[in-house]
Structures are given as C-alpha cells and as structure tokens.
Amino acid sequence: MADLKSAAPLLEVEDLRVHFHTPRGEVEAVRGLSFTLGRERLGIVGESGSGKSQTGRAILGLTAGNGRITAKTLRFQGQDLLSLSPKQWRAVRGARMSMIMQDPKYSLNPVMTVGDQIVEAYRQHHRVSAAEARQRALAMLARVKIRDPERVFATYPHEVSGGMGQRIMIAMMLIPEPDLIIADEPTSALDVTVRLQVLAILDDLVRERGMALIFISHDLPLVSSFCDRILVMYKGRVVEDLKASDLQSARHPYTQGLLGCLPRLDHRQETLPVLRRDPRWEHGTLEEVMR
C-alpha cells in the first residue's frame, strides 16, 4: 500500500481551466494547466493576474461562485476531485490537503482565541475529546516554535504579531496532518528575517511528515531558493517548467525578464531593464517563443 502510494503521483492535473463569468463577459483565468506533483516542493511563480492563485484555489475547490473549473484530469491520491460533491470535497479539504493564505490578519477569525481555532481545525477531522485536542493544539504551537504556547493559546489574533499570526496559521493548517499543503504567498506580508524563519518552520514540517508543498509566490528568487521545481505562469498558462536550481539558465524570455528587472545588490546599474512583453508569450510554446 505504502509502495503504491509513493509510486503514483500525489496530484495529477491535466488541462485545468478556470473560467469566470463576469459582467464584461467570460474570462479565462487558467488556460490549460498540466502538471503532476509527487512528494516535493513545487513553486508556482507569476505576476498578478497570471492565474497562480486561481490554480491553488481550483485544486482545493475554493473557486469563487462565478467561476467554473474544467479539467481532463484533476486527481488527488487517485481520487477524481471534479466528481466530488461539495460535502465530499469538504472532507478532503483540511484533512488531506490544506491552504495557507497570505495575510493572517484576514484569515484568522478575529473574535475567537487562537487556541480555539486550532482545536476547531483538529476536531473537524478527528473525533477526540476537547482535552486531547487542546493538548494537540499546544504541541502544534510548540512545533511552530512559539515560545509560550499556553499564553498564545488564549490570545486573540489582534494580540499577536504578523510573524506569530502566520505561524499560528501554519499550526492550524498542519494539525490535521494533510498530505498536500498549498501556500499562497504565505510570507509576503512579513519582514525578511521573520519570513525566512517561518519558511524554515514550514520546511521542517514538510520534510518530517513527507508532505507535498505547492508554494505560490511572485518572488522568483525566494521560490528558487526554497523549492525543488518551479512552474512559471503567464496569463493563465505555464510558460516554463524548470528545476529550481536551474533558474539562472531559464530559457523563456518572460522568466529571464522577471529575473532581469529586479534591482540587485551585487550588480548596480543606472537603469533597470524593463520587461518587453511579447504577444507570442500568450499562446506560443517555449520552442515557438524561442524561435
């Protein structure tokens, strides 16, 4: 059984499309995305409007009401996600795959203590006593390197800092022990040192528990230093799929452009190169674009 599990990919996505019905007509936010995910850390990178967040949401069944998902394949641990009823999907979400959002200020419940929220997340999927759930929650707070779990357990979200809030989010999302974590800009609201510390915690948990991680971010250098593989998205499509360590030898002009337009400490220049968008990037394959 265990062998079977590791052999088959955790997540298979083929020709994923997300359409939105808007007053100004049909908008296709994700246009034919395909990838398979094993127990690895995959980065999805792109600018605003590239469809990276909508991809994460579609996998979790969290697409907004005016959106429509279609795919040839959307399979998680061998289970066809598109055939699930909302209730069945809810049983998968949280327990087996989970999402860490960008800003803890907006994703934690402001009128519930931190501890109660983590306990709720755990008891949603595990039938245990309140006392046991509390113990689990305290242990989880300690796992995300919160120094005084008892004190933090009783606080409300507005009483904690941004970095602490994001650790609490991670604790809440990981306590049901999912197999896949989708983190959508999990550290963009944090200061650089805190950002790295939070990523280190996430890194430890992912390694120890053998979870897969989809890390959605606009920060190409950060993703390349953290993930195993990167998908670069542009206007709803993956334009390049590469090993994180190969980022510097990226071939697609969009990927190169994104890297090039960043100011760099070690290379000062008077004028930054700007991205010259080519209409071919919207439809062309890498080979066509390179020609």
Binding site: V192, P221, L222, F226
Partner: peptide, 18 residues
C-alpha cells in the same frame, strides 16, 4: 549584517544564525 544575509534568499545555515 543579518539583514543583508536575510536578503539573499532561503538558506538554513543563515536562518539558524538569526
């Protein structure tokens, strides 16, 4: 120095030295 090191991406050794 710490701020400068933190700006160069994800590196476990660096983070553990914070």
């Amino acid at each position: 120095q710490q701020l400068l090191r933190a700006s160069s991406g994800f590196d476990r050794a660096v983070i553990d030295s914070f």
